[in-house]
């Protein structure tokens, strides 16, 4: 066992896969000698060298085009887009090229690639370096979308993403990079498309993703003190979506609260609400409630950003009001 930060877990997860399979390569801006702007790739350059861990120019289309061309010809690239907001300058490669080409070619091509990206707010970076874009990725047919919430899941889901034959968008919550946990030694491999029940309660089910997971857990503790006993589900994977686990846990309590960092409209919780309404409507004891960032660009000032992103206090207040209302 070792204490590992979320950012260290990224490097460990990548290194585990690069040692196992020499077709795994890493590319991105500043990921080599500099170890990544978020220090998520520290040590990789030293261990695997400049051919397998490669710095690129600020050319997001070139980075993802390179990953796509490499994947279609037998390699397993892990590409980094530094901030997920930057997907906007290379979204064509993701959406029109990577996501569609297997289908368009009637299965002639596969794209075993991973695109990692720092996602979401909490670091006071302002609107162009803080958005939580998981909903952008989720709505694109042909992309798998993974959002780990802790260091252990980072390693296991990174391994699963690298080994998966399809393109995986791997979103790293920037607010969690410094978080720590005990992680076992040895190889860790997880499974895509599996949600995790982190806490079991009788009254309400909080379904959270990424940086919202620790907040939902904290909120559940406070709510328990006030007599509201919550289940907390970590979604982990938006595509494939583990609806089996989520529907089961929502049915059990009869109440669903989603905790989402993405802006309100078309957030992943909207889709989940639709599935729950269609499939287990009669198991519900009250309205589905979505707790999200409002539909605004994120402000830079800490006071404002803290108001925008769902907080433990807002989760507690919203759940309390709805359960008692």
């Amino acid at each position: 066992m070792a204490q590992l930060t979320f950012r260290e877990a990224i490097a460990r997860g990548i290194a585990q896969e690069m040692r196992r399979d020499e077709t795994v390569l890493a590319i991105g801006e500043d990921i080599g000698a500099a170890g990544g702007v978020f220090k998520g790739t520290v040590g990789l350059f030293e261990e695997f060298g400049p051919v397998r861990v490669r710095d690129t120019p600020i050319s997001e289309q070139a980075i993802l085009g390179a990953a796509m061309g490499a994947a279609m010809t037998g390699l397993r690239p892990i590409a980094e887009i530094m901030f997920s907001d930057f997907f906007a300058v290379c979204w064509d490669i993701v959406v029109n090229e990577i996501a569609k080409s297997r289908y368009m070619t009637n299965g002639q091509m596969t794209f075993p690639l991973v695109i990692r990206s720092g996602n979401g707010g909490g670091l006071r970076f302002g609107a162009q370096h803080s958005q939580s874009v998981e909903n952008w990725a989720m709505m694109v047919p042909g992309l798998k979308v993974v959002v780990p919430s802790n260091a252990l899941d980072v390693i296991g889901l990174m391994a699963a993403a690298v080994r998966d034959p399809d393109p995986v968008i791997f979103l790293e919550a920037k607010a969690l990079y410094a978080s720590k946990m005990e992680v076992p030694d040895g190889e860790i491999v997880d499974t895509l498309g599996t949600a995790k029940v982190l806490r079991q309660g009788a009254d309400a089910t909080l379904v959270a993703l990424g940086a919202m997971v620790p907040k939902a857990l904290k909120a559940a503790e406070e709510l328990a003190g006030a007599g509201i006993d919550c289940t907390v589900v970590d979604v982990r994977s938006l595509v494939p979506l583990d609806t089996t686990t989520i529907l089961r846990e929502v049915s059990a309590t009869g109440r669903l609260f989603t905790v989402e960092e993405n802006p309100r409209l078309c957030g992943w919780g909207g889709e989940l609400s639709s599935i729950v309404s269609e499939e287990i409507f009669y198991d519900l004891d009250g309205p589905i409630v979505r707790i999200t960032t409002p539909h605004i660009p994120l402000p830079a000032a800490d006071a404002l950003e803290d108001m925008a992103i769902p907080s433990v206090e807002r989760i507690v207040a919203t759940v309390t009001q709805s359960m008692n209302g």
Partner: peptide
Amino acid sequence: GAHLPIACGAAWSAQYR
């Protein structure tokens, strides 16, 4: 223009392999 970077990727792959 999208396929120019993708062609680079295939070329990179050939170079690496």
